[in-house]
Amino acid sequence: MQPRKTDLAHAALQAHRAPLDLRQRRALILCDGKRDLAELVTLLGDDAPALIARLQRDGYLHVAQPEPAPAAVPDAAPSAAARRRSLVAARIYLLDMLALQRHPAAARLHQLLQATRGEDDTVHALRLALAQLPAMASDGYVGRVRERLREVLPESCLAAVLDTPLPA
C-alpha cells in the first residue's frame, strides 16, 4: 500500500487555512506514492495506519499498490528513531512552520532556509530561524517547534542547532 495525494490534498497543503492539523499535513507531505505503510509508520509513528486511513476516507489520499521489489536483507537495520532523524526533515519542518507565520522576517528566514544546500548552511539557517521565532510566535508555539526539531534532527546536529547561541 503506497498512499498518494489527491487533488484535494494538494489544494489543502497549499491553503494554509485548510482543516488539517500539523500531523495530518506532515502525513500528506510524506505520502508521495513511493513510501509504503511500513516506511510511513517509521516516519510518523505507530498511529500512522489510522491517520492514513482517516486521510484516505476524507478524500485526501488514494492508495496505489506497490510494485514488486527484489527482497534485500539489510546488514543491520537502524532503529526507528534513528531512521526518522534527518537534517532534511528538520529543514522541511521548519520551512512549514515559517510559512505559517505572517511576519516579514518569517518570509525572509523561509527564503534563506529554502536556499540552503550544505549541512553547515542549513544548521546556521535553522539556528537563525529559531533565534528569531520568539519575536513572531508565542512561547508555547516556539516550545513545540523546538521539541519537534529535537525529535527529527540528527544527533550530531542537536547541540549546534538547539543549544548553541548565535554570535552577537
Rank of each mutant, 00 (worst) to 15 (best):
R25M: 05
C157W: 03
D139W: 01
E147F: 01
V73N: 11
R148L: 03
L153T: 07
R108N: 10
Q114F: 11
V142G: 03
S138H: 09
Q132G: 02
L30Q: 15
H103Q: 08
P104Y: 07
L100W: 06
A131E: 13
A168E: 15
A135G: 06
L20P: 05
I29S: 08
R17H: 14
M1K: 07
E67K: 13
L37W: 00
L100S: 02
L8M: 14
Q111T: 12
V123W: 01
Y93L: 10
A115W: 09
P74V: 08
L126T: 03
A125N: 06
H103T: 04
P70R: 15
L30K: 13
A11F: 08
L112F: 01
L61S: 07
G140S: 10
G118E: 15
T116Y: 04
L98V: 07
C31R: 03
D139G: 06
A99T: 07
E151H: 10
L158T: 14
L94T: 03
D36K: 02
R144I: 01
E67Q: 15
A81I: 14
I92R: 10
L61R: 02
S79H: 06
A107G: 00
R108G: 00
D163S: 12
V161R: 07
S156L: 09
L133R: 09
L37H: 09
Q56S: 12
P167V: 10
Q65C: 02
L61G: 02
I52E: 08
H10Y: 14
L166D: 12
D163G: 05
A105M: 12
P3F: 02
G118C: 06
A129L: 06
A76T: 11
D58C: 04
L51S: 07
A12D: 10
A9Y: 06
L126K: 04
T6N: 03
A82Y: 13
Q111G: 08
R54G: 04
A99S: 14
S79T: 15
L98E: 03
T164P: 00
L95N: 02
R85D: 01
Q114V: 00
P78W: 08
M97V: 10
